[in-house]
């Protein structure tokens, strides 16, 4: 059974026919060639398949494509703008928060979901938002530090210019 779907993926509108039994991760990786989204546990435990659905982190391994109809999806490929990396991506590189890298797209997207609504997160909030993302390599400390670093950089970039006249 085919279902006709329209969804937005990284800002571009896609209209396609999806079999009812197609999972979102297979649509993204297999048909749209967005292989930055990784599948590890297949059962919702690890977070490596994280994508943003209307801004919130979800498990693309447990989501049928039909449930993404009409929604805005962001994958790791959608973060860089005009070839410039997102501050989270820069911070992960600068602080050495990446080892094998398999968990990192999910980590960065889970962190982005937080920073988009809470630009000045506490340590507890960062840990809560990353608790569902497992990393077998880094020990997490540098990942948390990278998210804090990116948050500071984003806050500095959006702070109103000193001395700007109040409206």
């Amino acid at each position: 059974m085919l279902i006709s779907l329209t969804l937005r993926v990284n800002g571009a509108s896609e209209t396609l026919d999806a079999p009812a039994n197609e999972l979102l991760i297979d649509l993204l990786r297999g048909r749209l060639n967005l292989t930055g989204t990784k599948e590890a546990c297949e059962v919702g435990e690890c977070g490596s398949c994280t994508v943003l659905l209307d801004g919130a982190a979800v498990r693309s391994c447990l989501l049928f494509a039909f449930d993404a109809a009409g929604k805005e999806i962001t994958t790791i490929e959608g973060l860089a703008v005009d070839g410039r990396l997102h501050p989270l991506q820069e911070a992960f590189m600068e602080l050495g928060a990446v080892q094998c890298g398999f968990c990192i797209p999910g980590m960065i997207l889970a962190a982005k979901a937080l920073l988009d609504v809470q630009p000045r997160p506490t340590l507890a909030e960062i840990k809560q938002h990353l608790a569902g993302n497992l990393c077998r390599c880094t020990g997490y400390a540098k990942i948390v530090a990278a998210v804090q670093h990116a948050a500071r950089r984003l806050a500095a970039a959006t702070r109103p210019e000193a001395g700007a006249a109040a409206p």
């Binding site: 919702g44 977070g47 982190a57 979800v58 498990r59 989501l63 889970a110 569902g132 993302n133």
Partner: peptide, 9 residues
């Protein structure tokens, strides 16, 4: 319950 994404889904 679980993690934030699972609690949301």
């Amino acid at each position: 319950v679980a993690s934030l994404p699972i609690r949301r889904m």
